[in-house]
Amino acid sequence: MNVPTTLLGLLEPEPSHGYELKRSYDSLFADNGRPLSFGQLYGTLNRLERDGQIEVLDAVPGGGPDRKRFVITGAGVAQVEGWLGAPERPEPMLQATLFVKVVLALLSGRPASAYLDAQRDAHLERMRELTAMRKAGPLSRTLLADYGLFHLEADLRWIDLTAARLDQLRKEISR
């Protein structure tokens, strides 16, 4: 789960206040992990601002963290794009990250299916490796490889299913 880049992705469509970002994050992704604490939120935003990936658009006079509205910078967009475009290392328990990526791509109008395809390729690449490994034996390694294969297969099924339902998902999150 890459919280900074996720926040960047949520910020990309339009400038937001911190509490708005937290609300979006929690409603979209909290099922996968824990809700975002304010401490984590503002810490991350400060770090992003420091790295030049976001900047403060305007601030209501009176001070306090909640008064700032953030906007993404060019460096920030590049960071989001790079992250989305790079398939995750096909490892077990990826679904949270994959899901975030799909949602962010949909939110930003990027080709989510292409990301999924890329991910599928990466998965298959890994599956080929594992298949070769399980063929080579010995059995202990074969079983290990099988374990990996079954998990990757489960991911792939999820990828296929999601790819088939992207339109539905887009409608749902843009509501």
Binding site: D117, R120, D121, L124, M127, T131, L149, L156
Partner: peptide
């Protein structure tokens, strides 16, 4: 079936 496709050298969609 991905597990079948994994026997291949290469894969297209």
């Amino acid at each position: 079936d991905a597990r079948v496709a994994a026997h291949a050298d290469r894969q297209i969609t």
